[in-house]
Computed example of a mutant assay.
Amino acid sequence: MSFSAEDLATLLDEANHAPWESVRAALATIDGQPHPRVGWLTGHLTATKRGYWTLVAAATATPAPDAAAGLTRLMAWEVDATRALNTEALQIPLMHSNERLTVSELLRLNARHTAWHAGQIAALATHTRLA
């Protein structure tokens, strides 16, 4: 299955920023002190996105994300970075977790991974934290 850079950017943008069922939407539902697992999940998403993009940058000779970028800035950056990839770059093979994937497949994995954790954050956002 082949996705264009625009298709992949849309998947990531929706997983990151859509008004419903995204990381941004899940985080917006938190009122008060968040469940401690939310902090772990946002840190994990930041680290994995940075890791994915470090692999993509090395394979495609494109810029890597800013090492100081937090999750919000990283999510916006990756949408623009995806749109900038050409068709040839999307087909470049790379290794992730001992699996051979194309750049396109890794970006689809990134979108699925993001949506998975957005759901976990949303589920934890409904838990009331007591002091």
Score class of each variant (00 low, 15 high):
Ala26Thr: 00
Ala57Glu: 04
Ala111Glu: 04
Leu130Ser: 14
Trp77Met: 00
His35Asp: 12
Ala125Gln: 02
Asn110Gly: 08
Ala5Ser: 15
Ala125Val: 01
Thr48Gln: 09
Leu55Gln: 13
Ile92Gln: 14
Ser4Gln: 03
Gly70Phe: 05
Pro34Ile: 02
Trp20Ala: 13
Thr114Val: 08
Leu101Gln: 01
Gly51Leu: 07
Val23Gln: 09
Ala125Pro: 05
Trp116Asp: 15
Gln33His: 09
Glu88Trp: 06
Glu14His: 14
Val56Met: 06
Leu45His: 02
Thr29Lys: 12
Pro93Gln: 10
Arg100Trp: 07
Ala15Arg: 03
Ile30Gln: 06
Ser2Asn: 11
Ala18Lys: 09
His113Asn: 08
Ala59Thr: 12
Ala115Lys: 06
Asn86Lys: 07
Leu27Asn: 01
Leu107Met: 13
Ala123Asn: 11
Ala25Trp: 02
Ile121Pro: 05
Leu27Ala: 03
Ala122Gly: 10
Ala111His: 06
Gly39Arg: 15
Asp13Pro: 01
Arg83Leu: 05
Ala122Cys: 06
Phe3Ser: 12
Ala26His: 00
Val103Gly: 03
Pro65Trp: 11
Ala59Ser: 14
Thr82Glu: 08
Ala123Pro: 03
Gly119Ala: 10
Leu11Asn: 06
His127Trp: 09
Asp31Ile: 09
Gly119Gln: 07
Gly43Glu: 14
Thr60Trp: 02
Val23Trp: 05
Leu74Gly: 08
Ala59Lys: 03
Ala9Trp: 08
Ala15Asn: 03
Leu45Thr: 01
His35Phe: 04
Leu124Ile: 05
Thr128Phe: 04
Ala47Tyr: 07
Glu6Val: 02
Ala61Leu: 10
Asn16Met: 08
Val79Arg: 07
Ala111Lys: 10
Ile121Gly: 06
Leu109Val: 09
Asp7Ser: 11
Tyr52Asp: 12
Gly32Ile: 05
Leu107Val: 12
Gln91Arg: 15
Met1Pro: 13
Gln120Val: 08
Gly51Cys: 03
